[in-house]
């Protein structure tokens, strides 16, 4: 199947002033490649500060003015330029933002979902979408402050899918929700994928991501370090030591910590970013030179000495 979105060698950097007028460039995302097919949920997991949200903003063309983007983003096989992104976003490509603060506090839910349109068709459509997420007609008359957290999130999803998008970027849609509400919200994304949309789910909740995602992309310090299928996790077929550490850190899987923190954008060397924390680090790993991102056992890995799984 032809992918709906292809991201190739994407890098995003910021230019910053420090110590007065000296300018420096801060690379935040580095050499990131992946693709999303229609009907698929791809989860992007990684610690905070690994560049997950920037990725979504880069696809939508809403990066801040002091940033620079390199590499290619193809949408349905054609480059997604700034101009094209502006035309498509909000229609074919939608963002389900992280917070309730993205709703207009001074606008009722109904008009907000319809984006101000008043014709009967729009009204019927918005009614149907709200209905789908279990929100009754009375909700259309409410202001955002009158919604609970879970309702507000459903309103955010409703206002994104009212346009029947082909690509949905969901940025941390579940924190602060209890397990049942969170899995219900994620179920909605799975349904949207089953209806034929491509879904990019950005989250740090690995456990929830695994319940709905087909593919999982792991980011560390702005790089993709592994792409795995959801089944690889429970089957012990993970390739990168960081992904293994994430899996082992789940409370039900041992709750084992590893020391250290992810390097800052300014401190990133060109060698292996994970070497200082890696339990399997060898002397060669600390050397300079970029680590290639290579296919391995049905997935991808960026490690000089990847873990061999049962599949190898």
């Amino acid at each position: 199947m032809e992918p709906i979105l292809q991201v190739e060698h994407l890098s995003i950097s910021f230019s910053q002033y420090h110590r007065g007028t000296r300018k420096r460039t801060l690379p935040v995302i580095h050499d990131l490649s992946f693709s999303i097919c229609p009907g698929q949920v791809t989860a992007v997991v990684g610690s905070s500060g690994s560049g997950k949200s920037l990725l979504a903003h880069g696809i939508l063309g809403i990066l801040p003015y002091n940033s620079a983007l390199e590499g290619t983003i193809l949408y349905q096989g054609t480059p997604l330029t700034q101009r094209r992104a502006e035309q498509l976003r909000g229609r074919e490509i939608v963002l389900v933002p992280q917070g309730v603060t993205y709703l207009d506090p001074l606008m009722e839910v109904g008009p907000q979902i319809r984006k101000g349109r008043r014709d009967p068709r729009s009204k019927a459509r918005s009614r149907a979408v709200l209905e789908r997420y279990g929100l009754g007609p009375e909700v259309e008359k409410r202001y955002p402050f009158e919604l609970s957290g879970g309702m507000a999130r459903r309103v955010l999803i409703a206002s994104a899918v009212v346009e029947q998008p082909k690509l949905i970027l969901a940025d941390e849609p579940t924190p602060g929700l209890d397990a049942r509400a969170a899995s219900r919200i994620l179920g909605h994304f799975r349904e949207l994928a089953e209806d034929g949309a491509g879904v990019l789910l950005i989250t740090h909740d690995l456990e929830l991501a695994l319940t709905i995602a087909h593919r999982v992309l792991v980011l560390y310090a702005g790089e993709t370090i592994e792409e795995a299928s959801a089944a690889d996790f429970s089957a012990g077929r993970l390739r990168h030591p960081y992904t293994r550490a994430l899996w082992a850190a789940l409370p039900q899987n041992g709750f084992t910590p590893i020391p250290g923190t992810q390097p800052y954008p300014g401190e990133i060397s060109d060698g292996c970013q994970f070497a200082p924390r890696c339990p399997r680090c060898r002397p060669e790993c600390r050397g300079p030179g970029p680590v290639p991102y290579v296919p391995r056992a049905g997935g991808w890995v960026r490690c000089r000495f990847p873990e061999g799984g049962e599949a190898l």
């Binding site: 610690s47 550490a245 709750f255 910590p257």
Partner: peptide, 17 residues
Amino acid sequence: DEITAMLDLITQTQIWD
């Protein structure tokens, strides 16, 4: 109060440890 809800798994285990 949900002190590790917004943290990644490894940071969560470090803090609880």
